[in-house]
């Protein structure tokens, strides 16, 4: 039933994965760059965190290094695309494939448990915060800070240039912006967020696994689309908010799917179907409207026009 731990669990997941979804939002929506490298930068962040913590480093330092590792991953995709002229999809896939090996190298094996290891949770609990609220409070504060920074950044001169690079690259180039540099910047930023999310998830769930990134892109996209469908954001501030809300709703949907009796292994299928429905819904409703219109035309009731009249 809806006890506090259950509700908190859904909210916590929605928040921690929303950082990943914001990364996907930056590439997909702002840069219009379908970046698949997130499937590997997410576990990259987790791998870095797990390896550093088990090696005795501070869990917060580990998060910062995760972020930096993600930045480098995004940088790689960006350089493959802009300098070597490899198509956006392929550049992402190449980074993803390469990082799979890198992640295994970092971890040394396929899975690192973090049970009985210090994490941000154990550290924050020592400060005397009520134990059951720690992850929720920490994730909420972090997401709030990231949202405010992102809102600010997207309204700076560079933020404008980044947005215009995704909107109309020809135009912003003609105003003196190096769109290649903007793409690399956006990809680095996005993958930094994704890796940070991965590092947080590893600490939160207590392990890092080399396969934990599979389907990251689809889950991120699902969050972005759900948010858009629900909130119809008309400004950047609302767009960023809609991604976070979308991530919460998505995690709720996953939770409900599990409650309905889906096996955890079915969740990728559920997610894919969810994304397909969300993407297809606007087109389906349009074609239904069109067929209705055609049916009415068949009866000759639309403006008295007879079928085949033109």
């Amino acid at each position: 039933m809806l006890t506090f731990p259950v509700v908190a669990g859904v909210l916590e997941q929605g928040l921690v994965y929303s950082l990943m979804a914001l990364g996907v939002f930056i590439t997909f929506r702002i840069l219009a760059f379908p970046d698949l490298s997130v499937d590997a930068t997410f576990p990259l962040g987790a791998a870095v965190c797990a390896k550093m913590i088990t090696s005795g480093y501070d869990p917060f330092l580990a998060l910062i290094v995760s972020l930096a590792a993600g930045l480098i991953g995004g940088l790689l995709t960006g350089l493959l695309n802009t300098k070597l002229k490899i198509s956006s999809l392929l550049a992402g896939i190449l980074t993803m494939t390469a990082l799979y090996s890198v992640n295994l190298r970092i971890m040394g094996r396929a899975n690192i448990p973090l049970l009985r290891q210090p994490t941000f949770i154990t550290i924050l609990e020592e400060t005397g915060l009520p134990q059951q609220y720690v992850p929720l409070l920490f994730f909420f504060s972090l997401v709030l800070i990231v949202k405010l920074v992102l809102d600010w950044f997207l309204h700076t001169e560079i933020g404008f240039a980044l947005r215009a690079t995704g909107d109309n690259p020809q135009m912003i180039r003609s105003l003196g912006v190096n769109t290649d540099a903007m793409k690399v910047l956006g990809l680095a930023l996005a993958n930094g967020l994704v890796a940070l999310s991965g590092g947080l998830v590893a600490q939160y769930q207590g392990f890092a696994d080399v396969g934990m990134g599979i389907g990251t892109i689809v889950a991120g996209l699902a969050s972005v689309i759900i948010g858009e469908v629900l909130l119809h954001p008309q400004s950047v501030v609302m767009q960023v908010l809609s991604v976070i809300v979308g991530s919460m709703i998505y995690r709720l949907a996953i939770f409900l799917a599990l409650r309905l009796g889906f096996a955890p292994t079915d969740l990728k299928l559920v997610t894919a179907v969810l994304v397909i429905i969300a993407l297809a819904a606007p087109n389906l409703s349009r074609s239904r409207r069109q067929s209705k219109l055609l049916a009415r035309l068949g009866k000759g009731v639309v403006n008295g026009v007879k079928p085949g009249g033109n």
Partner: peptide, 30 residues
């Protein structure tokens, strides 16, 4: 359609043009 960024506002488009060829930084765009 080619000369403007459709998803951005009028003032944001003008602000980008006003910085033509200049270095863009972290100042507020508008």
């Amino acid at each position: 359609m080619m000369g403007t960024a459709a998803s951005m506002s009028i003032e944001e488009n003008l602000a980008m043009a006003a910085k033509r060829g200049e270095r863009r930084g972290f100042a507020r765009g508008v």
